[in-house]
Amino acid sequence: MTAADLALLDEEVTHCRACPRLVEWRERVAREKRAAFRDQTYWGRPVPGFGPADARILILGLAPAAHGANRTGRMFTGDRSGEVLYAALYRAGLATRPVSVSADDDLRLIGTRITAPVKCAPPANKPEPAERDNCAHWLRRELRDLAELKVVVTLGAFAWAAWWMALEPVYGVRPPTPRPRFGHGVVHQMPGLPAVLGSYHVSQQNTFTGRLTPAMLDDVFRQARSLAGEESRG
């Protein structure tokens, strides 16, 4: 696949209206806004992945935040979770800047792409099973387009489960039975497939309570770079 294929997919994603509850919510948030952002125009649409087509590392989250990516139009951009994530990516040499404020702030990812199994902001950050299933074909297409992919970092149990659900449709390989359990720092590798690496999500609940610290996140991305063969590239 080429960068043009991925760009076309990203454009198609932004027009999806498959889930009425999510469409209503994301557009209502974009109209009503948060007071701090009342002068801004919200994106209010499905949010495509972010990063190059030749990425060797994929970061898989949950869904866009209502006043983060749903406002800015770029994954993990404009909220506290994004502040933590992009700072860690910068420290790991996987992003050109440590701060992500808007989709036009010139931040670039290096050998890395960020996406989510659900492309629209859900109420209470909790997509329903039917919404997850409606959105699954976008993730499958994205995975097929990432021909150089070596490792998938799953931020949380939701993303971990989404990876195993995509395995057979994308790669023609059945997941192990029972499926490996999610855990921070857990790695599972299958021959010929990208490795999957678990991490706690960069949610405020995790980062404010110390369940996920910057050092823990640094270890995850150091391991991801090693699994992807990026360390040998400098």
Rank of each mutant, 00 (worst) to 15 (best):
M190A: 13
F182Y: 15
P178R: 13
R179H: 11
V187F: 04
P178L: 12
Q189T: 15
V170E: 05
P178C: 13
V170I: 03
W164F: 15
F182E: 05
W163L: 03
P169W: 00
E168S: 12
R179S: 14
V173N: 09
P176V: 12
T177I: 14
V170H: 04
R179T: 15
V196C: 02
A195K: 01
G185A: 12
M165T: 12
E168A: 12
L197D: 05
A162M: 06
P175D: 01
V196Q: 04
S199K: 07
V196W: 03
A166E: 08
A166P: 04
V186A: 14
P175N: 07
F182I: 09
S199W: 06
F182M: 07
T177Q: 14
G198S: 09
A166F: 06
V173A: 08
V186M: 13
P194W: 06
V170F: 02
L167D: 01
R174W: 07
G198K: 05
S199H: 11
M190I: 13
M165Q: 11
A162T: 08
E168T: 06
H188I: 10
L197N: 02
V170G: 01
W163R: 03
A166L: 06
P169F: 04
H188A: 10
G185E: 10
V187R: 15
A195N: 01
S199I: 09
M190F: 00
L193F: 02
P178Q: 13
P180D: 10
H184C: 14
V196H: 04
M165P: 00
W163T: 00
P191L: 12
G198N: 09
H184A: 10
A195V: 02
G198W: 04
T177Y: 14
P178Y: 10
G185D: 13
T177M: 14
E168N: 11
E168V: 00
R174C: 07
M165G: 09
R179G: 13
P194I: 01
V170T: 10
G172Q: 04
P169H: 05
A162Y: 03
V170P: 03
G183K: 09
P176R: 11
